[in-house]
Design a protein around this nucleic acid. Structure first.
Length: 261
DNA sequence: ATGGTTGAACCTCAA
């Protein structure tokens, strides 16, 4: 069995103990991290290497930042999403994991939040989705076991928000964003959690403001999307709320997929 | 909810 998780940590330095404790408990083979909020050189490498992880890091000062942790070698790393050479934001990293003679393509993405529907940041969010879709349209032609884990900042279905009637139209649950996420999925990328749990209403993010977690008011915006060959091997997908219950948590919970490899 | 919290870095922005 091979396990791969996506986790928006909201600062890897502020979250170090929380994340290390979770790694000891969950023991994932690969972790796709988002929102490092630190430069590549400032990443606390040793703490993760001591637990047996190889690292591929694409950091940035203050904002964004993504990384891949892997118990297996990581090769052919790319850190730019094609389609906008002027984009300096560190929101994408991809590589090839080699295990048991098999190659697994993995990618970690931090889709922009968009802040407010109609804003410049919202336009950047929609553009980012278009770039993600163009890149994965090409990537899927390789017919690999491929896994895209991300903070998509978009709840895809009505069940993925607390009350879809009152919340429809807000940022992260808006027809324009859902259209983009669905178009990405329609390339042939499958939402692992929804495949395994068609009727479960569970969130992956809760706002710090207004005690969102305590009130059960969140969104399912962190997803692990699988290529068809990865779906063939899908064993389970869970949202692990344990780190969200601890002191000084991220506002996100990790999503963990297990594959029969 | 023209509010509420958190993190990084600065005296505010992004989420």
């Amino acid at each position: 069995m091979f396990s791969i998780a996506t986790f928006n940590v909201n600062s890897v330095k502020a979250r170090l103990q929380n994340v290390l404790t979770w790694l000891d408990a969950a023991k994932p083979d690969v972790v796709l991290l988002q929102e490092l909020k630190c430069e590549t050189d400032a990443f606390p490498r040793m703490e993760f290497e001591d637990k047996g992880y190889n690292l591929a890091i694409h950091g940035q000062k203050t904002y964004n930042g993504v990384a891949i942790l892997s118990k297996y070698p990581i090769d052919d790393v790319i850190t730019r999403l094609p389609g906008d050479d002027a984009d300096e934001q560190a929101r994408y990293i991809e590589g090839i994991i080699s295990l048991k003679g098999k190659a697994v393509r993995v990618a970690s993405a931090y889709v922009p939040n968009g802040q407010e529907v109609g804003s410049d940041k919202f336009a950047y969010k929609l553009k980012f989705y278009e770039r993600l879709r163009a890149h994965w349209a090409q990537t899927l032609r390789h017919h690999e076991i491929a896994v895209l884990g991300a903070d998509f900042n978009c709840a895809p279905y009505a069940i993925d928000v607390l009350d879809h009637r009152s919340q429809d139209g807000m940022v992260c649950y808006n027809a324009l964003e859902r259209e983009q996420l669905r178009a990405l999925m329609n390339l042939g990328l499958y939402d692992a959690f929804r495949l395994k749990h068609p009727d479960v209403k569970q969130f992956s993010w809760w706002d710090y403001r207004g005690a969102g977690y305590e009130k059960g008011n969140g969104l399912r915006i962190d997803h692990v999307l699988l290529s068809p060959l990865a779906v063939d091997r899908l064993h389970d997908c869970i949202i692990d709320e344990e780190p969200r219950k601890q002191e000084k948590p991220s506002d996100h919970a990790p999503v963990v997929v297990t594959l029969n490899i």
